[in-house]
Design a protein around this nucleic acid. Structure first.
Lengths: 146, 146
DNA sequence: TTGACGATTGGTACTTTATTGCATTCGGTA
DNA sequence: TACCGAATGCAATAAAGTACCAATCGTCAA
């Protein structure tokens, strides 16, 4: 199961990078990996408050930032003015709903596979890319008021 | 010239959609179309303050929102937690710098041209998509402190 | 197993980005 | 040129994210 795998990876990375394996970090990873969508820091904070009273919003933001640096999670590109996080760091396309802002995986993980150059003519170094499909999720098409 | 073309388009769209052609709207369009990168609302506001004292930040936000609804501008997808705007509404890939956050066009406008389905198996309706190349611009590679 | 040390956390305050409400002013039409 | 609804400016507020610092915790060596 993905959730277990990520907990395992978290333990290994913490160990090898000399970073503490705190209950908060484990909880954030568990909460993120448990979701099939790609939540914002605040959405995760809400999940975590229930499971772990006393959890601080600041900590959630910081843990996610740390995870990003460790390569354990990724920020998802979207038009929305807030960061969405994905525990699956392999390259794959996302769907973003224009109505509710939800971010989920696109079924065909190979869709939009590209091979950008390492450098552009301008000297811009490309290290990553994202393919984002934008539209309206089924729920929002049925009931546009969320 | 692109700037002139967009001013023209603004006049036409305002007329046909029964929306006022205010000096503020013209100024925002001029300021946005004049830039080769894709600025945030606040960056535009700063440009505009110089050209048009008394211009309000709120107005810039509202005008951009209106333009988006009218199809005159687009928000650019990015990992950053703020909205970047592009006056070129045709589909083309962007480069985003991870260091300074700058958003610019990728030279090869045909790169990453895709044909996503109109509906996914989940019933998600796809109306648009974005290809974003992520990395480090030349300036930031030479001087990572901005 | 314990003690010490540096890393991490929680809380608060603050910044940045964006939105809302409302009185005033303005653009477009008659 | 006067009217009317739309748009603006200002101030207040909301939402998203960051900085600071004292208190606490996880890790490692003894």
């Amino acid at each position: 199961m993905f959730k277990q795998k990520k907990q395992q990876e978290l333990r290994e990375i913490c160990k090898s990078r000399g970073v503490s394996l705190t209950p908060q970090r484990q909880a954030v990873m568990r909460a993120l990996a448990a979701r099939r969508d790609h939540p914002t820091a605040d959405q995760l904070y809400e999940d975590l408050c229930r499971q772990m009273p006393g959890m601080s919003r600041t900590t959630v933001y910081r843990v996610l930032e740390t995870f990003e640096k460790l390569g354990l999670v990724r920020k998802v590109d979207s038009r929305a003015s807030k960061a969405h996080y994905d525990a699956d760091t392999t390259l794959h396309p996302h769907l973003v709903c224009l109505n509710c802002g939800k971010v989920v995986d696109y079924q065909d993980r190979e869709f939009g596979h590209l091979e950008p150059p390492v450098f552009t003519d301008d000297g811009f170094q490309i290290v990553d890319y994202a393919v984002t499909l934008v539209g309206f999720c089924r729920q929002c098409r049925q009931d546009p008021n969320n």
